[in-house]
C-alpha cells in the first residue's frame, strides 16, 4: 500500500485515514481501491477521514467520500470527518456532506 498517498492508524476501535492534499479526479480513483481494500479487512468499529491536510476537493472527491459512506453503512460502521480549512470545507458544506456525516474535531 502506498503510504505516500494514504496514511492510516487504528486508535482504539477507530480507523483514522489521512486523505491527500488534493482529493480530486486524479487522486480519488486509485485511492478508492486502496481504501476499500483496507476497509474490507475489518478490525474497526468506525472510520475517520482526516481532511485536515487537504487543501483542494472537487466533485470526484465528494463522490469518493459518499461512496465510502455508503459502503460503511452497508457494513454497519460509522464514518466521521475531520474537516479541512474553511475555504476547502465550502465544497463539503455546499454538497451537504455534513447533513449525513458528522464532524470530529480532534487532531490525530
Amino acid at each position: 500500500m502506498g503510504l505516500a498517498i494514504m496514511k492510516f492508524e487504528l486508535r482504539g476501535n477507530a480507523l483514522y485515514i489521512k486523505l491527500p492534499e488534493e482529493l480530486d479526479h486524479v487522486s480519488a480513483i486509485p485511492l478508492r481501491k486502496r481504501v476499500d481494500k483496507l476497509l474490507s479487512l475489518g478490525g474497526y468499529e468506525s472510520v475517520v477521514f482526516d481532511l485536515t491536510h487537504t487543501t483542494f476537493i472537487d466533485s470526484t472527491g465528494i463522490g469518493f467520500i459518499l461512496g465510502r459512506y455508503k459502503l460503511l453503512q452497508s457494513l454497519n460502521k460509522q464514518l466521521y470527518i475531520m474537516p479541512p480549512d474553511d475555504k476547502t470545507d465550502k465544497v463539503l458544506k455546499l454538497c451537504g456532506i455534513y447533513t449525513i456525516i458528522s464532524k470530529l474535531n480532534e487532531v490525530i
Binding site: 472537487d58 466533485s59 465528494i62 469518493f64 455546499l94 454538497c95
Partner: peptide, 15 residues
C-alpha cells in the same frame, strides 16, 4: 456507476 454524483455544475454555479 463511476461514483459521480452530479455535483459538478452545482459547484460551478455556487462558486
Amino acid at each position: 456507476e463511476l461514483e459521480h454524483s452530479g455535483l459538478g455544475f452545482t459547484i460551478m454555479q455556487a462558486f
